[in-house]
Design a protein around this nucleic acid. Structure first.
Lengths: 218, 218
DNA sequence: ATATATATTTAGGTAAGCCTAAATAATCGA
DNA sequence: TCGATTATTTAGGCTTACCTAAATATATAT
């Protein structure tokens, strides 16, 4: 793969931290970025010298205020591009991640503003992930996954994890996109899979699928 | 400035060669890319090893077939982006060069195709520069500059050099954009400046301006 | 044709990101 | 709490793209 940029490291740290809360270990970061452990220690020292993060050997890293700002800027640009590619260039939601991953790094403030304007300042991207504001504010939306729903409940699809294209492709094929309304028919405890009803059809979701689709009571 | 990529070197060679015809000297390339002479010799050897160009020490470089292909691809992406930024994001023609300079390097074939489709396969960019085809064909349009016109002649503005933002900004302020029709009122031999008429107004163009605006008999 | 000027290459260095293997620190189980 | 396992850092190297200054070609002018 291509070399990881400063922005990739910072974004990675931000995203891993959101999951775990605590400082991010260098080896977790290494796995996330698909580089060697030693490479991360190396890079992390440089980024620490640039005051983008705090590094305590053997303890992991946390972003500084400046680091968080950079993460927000990068995530904002990423999500604006995803939205733009879907709305203005006809991409589907499973095709935009990789493109945005590259475009986010070459986006000027001017371009960011124009993308935002062209989209009418959207608050979420095509997967339902919130887009940080121009000022770097991000309101994390906390939605339960389908795996945590109650049988018989009715929900609106609020977000789908963009980590695995497979989930996105499967849902695309079903037509089960953002904001669609579903009913939970059956929760299968044995393997965590779920049967939902949508559009008068019963749809089977594996446990993995169910854990990657997030909903809101409706 | 940022490091120059392989694509920048190849594109630079292509463009310099179009001007002079012969092999491109390493120092001309260095000036063009704003890097040291020694750096170019260095890079040129690497690109030669990759078969993108032919390098004869002390004689300069020429692109191989593969090199020309890469130049065409890069120029196509650059010009499609310029067109897209103008048509779909409201940029003006003097603002797009730098953005396109970055975007061209992170554009997948898929994205290239979608830009092209969204624009209806345009044949020229916002400055009138021809856009290479998908297959890498570029038909160079040869237009005389305003500095070479004949007094009293009537012309259509076919292309404006995108090298200097100043020219583009000046013309933008006048409203004198692509395809506008002008009449040559007076050629001033002394310093090469030209007085043209457009929209019932007389417009003064310095010699430098005149040499950067290209026209077609009309 | 030779000296001088100019163009080009070489040589030695730097910094960023990466790798692997060896060394060291932290953690966990008994 | 001690020893083993696991996590993390260090050390030594590689590649790319850059720089500057010195060396060497080439071109020019008399």
């Amino acid at each position: 793969m291509q070399n990881q940029s400063t922005e990739d490291y910072i974004k990675g740290i931000y995203q891993l931290r959101r999951r775990t809360g605590a400082a991010v270990s260098t080896s977790d970061l290494a796995r996330h970025l698909k580089v060697g452990d030693g490479s991360v220690t190396d890079m992390v020292k440089r980024l620490s010298a640039k005051k983008l993060l705090n590094y305590v050997p053997y303890k992991g890293v946390t972003l500084t205020e400046v680091g968080v700002k950079l993460a927000m800027k990068t995530i904002r640009r990423h999500r604006l591009w995803e939205m733009f590619l879907v709305r203005h260039l006809g991409y589907s939601w499973d095709e935009v991640h990789e493109e945005a991953e590259r475009l986010e790094h070459v986006t000027s403030l001017e371009l960011e503003e124009r993308l935002d304007r062209a989209l009418g300042s959207p608050s979420v991207d095509p997967h339902g992930d919130p887009i940080p504001t121009r000022e770097g504010e991000l309101k994390e939306l906390i939605h339960p996954s389908v795996a945590e729903c109650r049988e018989g409940g009715r929900y609106r699809i609020a977000r789908v994890s963009d980590e695995s294209p497979e989930v996105l492709q499967y849902l695309k094929k079903l037509g089960l996109t953002l904001n669609k309304r579903i009913a939970i028919k059956q929760m299968i405890k044995f393997d965590g899979s779920v049967i939902v009803e949508w559009n008068k059809r019963e749809i089977f979701l594996s446990g993995l699928m169910a854990r990657n689709i997030f909903v809101e009571e409706a």
